[in-house]
Design a protein around this nucleic acid. Structure first.
Lengths: 234, 234
DNA sequence: GCCACGACGAGAGCACTGCTCTTGCATGGC
DNA sequence: GCCATGCAAGAGCAGTGCTCTCGTCGTGGC
């Protein structure tokens, strides 16, 4: 190992350490992440952090990517577990529900990270291209459930596509991602994803207070089964 | 008018002026509202603002209440217009769609205000009780559509309530607000509201980028008609 | 009519923030 | 052995929320 490689490794470790401390601050203090406070926790000058992240926004971007990775990984794990668990043929709706629960569980456990990726954008911050490939993992999992269900002949045939310009856009999305699913299934996927985001955000941001206070998990599952039914799963 | 009343009026006008300038800043700069910048725009010292708002959070709270009022009023206006427009008997689903479009139109026109009330909470900020009565206006309008449709016999009968603890909570909500609608309709109302929030937030926060870029309004309406159908409207 | 009181505005100041610039230090390659 | 390079630290700038004090000015009570 050359010295340059060693230096790069030390640098990567330091970067990781900064991110970890920043994530701890994020989890406790919320989105108003203070670079100086992170530096203090690490026992170094605030200016030293700028050797690793050019700006606070860049640090936030790194945390956004990590958050997308984490929630996507949690959802993928749940999907895999649900798929395997049903050795003969699990109902696709159970995969749909398992993915949704995994996302919600992650969000409840990491509310500030959720807000970072699916909440209102940080002021003055614009998501760079780095994040988009991480951002679509959850929705691609949902799309996969419908694709498999369609292949297994478990979805009712719906001719045509939703009427309107957006129907063509849905068809274009299917083509773009190489999905051999009709446009209305792409729409149903996005419909489910939209509701997933809405259900979690309304719950986390207090819109359900004084209405559903006890069985939020049950209410959530009821909703997600409704979106699955809209897609044709049952 | 006594002098005290005059003073109170001057004070109210000044308070209103501060809120207007703050709203202008909010609309352009986003949620990182600077009290000092507002004071500069008003040509007064920053400390003078504290005569009217005890803290930045209090100013934000005032703007949150105003935002709830604005979106609720827009939705109520659209509902009233849709109801009147259909002099003999407009399909209830059109009222549902009209309310939804009004909320979305307002959100698209005032994205930062939307983020303020339905986005991730401002760091360190907790919504005070003042906001909750303003917050439920939109969802009460949606509930009203279903209530009227039920009274007109336009909803299919669904016996019982959703199974689970949350079903009881839904029934309790119906009782709490004096709604004579069954629990599953309360659930459908909240389902529609959740999707409304999710659809608008995903659109505003860029989750639809590179998928639905042209006909977002059409995609939104398609979604809201689906939530109406879930409630039994068609 | 006067005067005290209270509301108000302005300014200074504190602690904090993101970010930049300069300086010193240490280490590895020649 | 010397030098270049990467790193850390400190000072400093402009900005923030918020507090405190002080001067002013209009108003209500006497």
């Amino acid at each position: 190992m050359t010295a340059a490689n060693l230096r790069a490794r030390v640098r990567a470790e330091m970067t990781e350490e900064i991110k970890q401390v920043a994530q701890r601050h994020l989890a406790t203090d919320g989105a108003n992440l203070s670079l100086r406070a992170v530096a203090r926790d690490l026992g170094m000058a605030s200016s030293a952090v700028y050797r690793y992240f050019a700006s606070r926004d860049e640090l936030l971007t790194a945390m956004i990517i990590d958050a997308y990775e984490a929630v996507g990984a949690a959802a993928a794990r749940a999907d895999a577990a649900a798929t395997v668990a049903s050795s003969p043929a699990v109902a696709p709706v159970e995969r749909w529900v398992a993915i949704s629960h995994a996302v919600r569980d992650w969000a409840v456990a990491n509310p500030h990270q959720w807000a970072l990726i699916y909440g209102s954008p940080v002021p003055g911050y614009e998501a760079p291209q780095d994040t988009i490939e991480s951002a679509i993992r959850v929705i691609m999992l949902l799309a996969g459930v419908l694709r498999d269900a369609l292949a297994a002949g478990e979805l009712p045939a719906v001719p045509g596509q939703p009427a309107g310009r957006f129907g063509e856009e849905l068809a274009a999305v299917a083509a773009q991602f190489g999905l051999d699913t009709p446009a209305h299934l792409v729409g149903a996927t996005m419909y489910g994803f939209v509701h997933l985001c809405g259900a979690i955000s309304t719950e986390l941001y207090g819109q359900l207070n004084n209405s559903i206070d006890e069985d939020r998990r049950g209410f959530f599952e009821w909703q997600m089964r409704a979106t699955a039914a809209f897609a044709g799963l049952r």
